[in-house]
Design a protein around this nucleic acid. Structure first.
Lengths: 137, 137
DNA sequence: CTTGACCCTATACAAAGGTACAGGGTTCAC
DNA sequence: GTGAACCCTGTACCTTTGTATAGGGTCAAG
């Protein structure tokens, strides 16, 4: 799969793919005889993962860490090339940190949503003062 | 309150305050006779609000919209200067959109956190294979 | 009446995350 | 064998969200 095909399937543009490669989020792919990047399904999945992470508020740097984390877990399953204990501890620590961050963010978002919901109710009372829903609903 | 006092109380630097003013997130404050910006408690609260919004993933542009929203709701309470119906509808619509965004984001974050938790468990099994907690815990 | 700690404007720079363009090679169909 | 549609590298540029710096005015203490 050449770069434009990957871009099309992943829904992002060619420049961004090369940018991700420079940032170390995508591997340096093998090249065809004429020097064209040759991608596979794995690269597409990687981009899908990156695009999933971003709206969650992870920076590309953090996504890179998550990819390492994922690789470490995958290695457990494949039962070879397990990381050294120290490295593993670092990854676990990072994962805990990310989890705590996520939970905190969830809490804040819930509170924000609650406040927003209250605000909407107030606004709607104002918007339709004639039809008071509390009377018959 | 001069700008450095506000900066200190709000926990952000002077340049950022002027930047927010340029972006329309803070009002253009009245000036002293020598041209110094004169702030009050309202400005401090505004900054507190901005800083609360940011970790929730709102851009400054969105925060600006939320401020409009908040102003609209505040006007309801003070029972004067209520916005025209059309404007009010627009604000309600925006609020609904934001609420939907928030709920979606919460869902994604929960799913992400779940996956992370699973990953951590797997890693910990690997990290301490000798002490298997499922045996006695 | 000078010195230090403020304030002002304007402009430049920074990091993140892309996006576009210039200048040039490759491939394939006609 | 030439034109369109690809690909390459390198570099420049854009937006967001600030931070820093230059050049200069203000104010209060000593």
């Amino acid at each position: 799969m050449l770069i434009s095909e990957l871009a099309k399937q992943a829904g992002l543009n060619i420049q961004s793919i090369r940018f991700y490669e420079r940032q170390g989020l995508l591997r340096k792919p093998p090249r065809t005889s004429s020097g064209y990047r040759a991608y596979n399904q794995f690269d597409l999945e990687r981009i899908t993962f990156i695009k999933w992470c971003q709206p969650l508020g992870f920076t590309l740097k953090e996504v890179k860490e998550l990819i390492q984390l994922h690789a470490a877990v995958a290695n457990l399953s494949s039962a070879h090339a397990a990381p050294k204990p120290k490295e593993l501890q670092r990854i676990i620590c990072m994962a805990h940190q990310k989890s705590a961050d996520l939970q905190n963010k969830i809490k804040l978002l819930k509170s924000a949503d609650h406040q927003l919901t209250v605000a909407i109710k107030k606004l709607q009372t104002q918007a339709c003062p004639a039809s008071n829903p509390s009377r018959r609903a």
